[in-house]
Computed example of a mutant assay.
Amino acid sequence: MRRGSLLDISGLRVIFHTYRGTIKALNGVELWLNEEERLGVVGETGCGKSVTALSVMRLIEQPGEITEGSIWFNDKDLLKISEEEMDRIRGKHISMIFQEPIAALNPVFKVGFQVAEAIAHSQGVTIKDAYPQVREALEMVGLDWQRTIDLYAHELSGGMAQRVMIAMALAVKPKLLIADEPTSALDVTIQAQILELLDKLVTVSQSAVVLITHDLGIASEFCDRVAVMYAGNVVEIATSEEIFSQPLHPYTKGLIDSIPVVGRSKELVGIPGVVPDLVDPPSGCRFHPRCKKVFDKCHAELPSLSQVKPNHYVACHLYQ
């Protein structure tokens, strides 16, 4: 049964073949999203957030491989359609803002051409016919369009490059926007400006958003729901309000307890241990080597993501 009206990821497994062995990057990811909803995906570096996003875009390339699962978008399983059909969806109905904006832009073409190319692809028109819409797209993100269209990627600041990426992603009015750490490379002041801009534009365009971030504060402010990932699994999903006020999974509790809060005298508590090596991940629940509440079943069996309260799902044997 479909759980989200727009997007439903079920049992997604992705591996990468390397000289060290096979990396089990995603281990049966479960995620879903409704139209115009905002979902935050949080977790430590290396937990599979970006790999999940690239899987939705079907941009996993060798040595990577999607081995199992389904990604339903509207009424189509994106893993079963042809590359030609996926190309019509990618950049038109699903857009992505990449983590490193300057690296994501083509260094040999001017900004104006690249924005026009994105618009032309989504509308099925020539790049020349798309050029009149470039001004509107750049002004939408607060850039001086006359100056910006003739610049190359290396001539942009980090904030400008991110605004160009947002313009390219949202000019096509996608049903789904995937934003992969859109503020990670920016200073704090520019971060706030970019998030405020993104908030305003997705509201106007009525796009659903998957926001990938390691910053729990950003997720709590921007998103309706939050999914917590650990070592290739989604371990908890709930509304933003509930996941911060009543976290259930030991990993989620550990993440929240490690956030410094102004005025709080309580000593910060870190999560012991390190993220496991996914070439040889732990058996059973991948978090059990770091968990304070581990018991025998955790070593042997991977917990499934189950609903324990209304709209609150957790993958933990403590609740099953």
Results as ranks from 00 to 15, higher is better:
residue 204 V to S: 14
residue 195 L to G: 13
residue 254 G to N: 03
residue 163 R to K: 11
residue 218 I to S: 07
residue 201 L to V: 15
residue 225 R to N: 06
residue 253 K to V: 13
residue 240 S to N: 10
residue 181 E to D: 11
residue 164 V to F: 05
residue 227 A to T: 00
residue 190 I to V: 14
residue 239 T to R: 12
residue 183 T to A: 06
residue 181 E to F: 01
residue 174 P to A: 10
residue 242 E to P: 03
residue 202 V to P: 06
residue 175 K to E: 07
residue 166 I to C: 12
residue 225 R to S: 02
residue 221 E to W: 12
residue 190 I to P: 08
residue 208 A to K: 09
residue 185 A to P: 05
residue 196 E to K: 15
residue 197 L to R: 14
residue 232 G to I: 01
residue 215 D to W: 05
residue 190 I to D: 10
residue 187 D to G: 11
residue 214 H to T: 13
residue 170 L to R: 08
residue 197 L to C: 14
residue 209 V to N: 10
residue 213 T to C: 14
residue 256 I to Q: 03
residue 167 A to L: 10
residue 252 T to E: 04
residue 248 L to I: 09
residue 244 F to P: 01
residue 167 A to H: 06
residue 220 S to G: 12
residue 256 I to A: 04
residue 241 E to W: 06
residue 220 S to F: 04
residue 167 A to P: 09
residue 177 L to C: 04
residue 230 Y to V: 09
residue 227 A to W: 00
residue 222 F to V: 15
residue 223 C to A: 15
residue 199 D to P: 08
residue 173 K to Q: 11
residue 247 P to S: 11
residue 240 S to W: 03
residue 235 V to H: 06
residue 224 D to K: 11
residue 183 T to P: 02
residue 201 L to S: 13
residue 207 S to G: 13
residue 216 L to V: 08
residue 165 M to W: 00
residue 254 G to Q: 03
residue 181 E to W: 00
residue 199 D to Q: 15
residue 233 N to M: 10
residue 205 S to Q: 12
residue 213 T to D: 12
residue 234 V to H: 01
residue 251 Y to V: 07
residue 229 M to W: 01
residue 242 E to I: 12
residue 173 K to W: 04
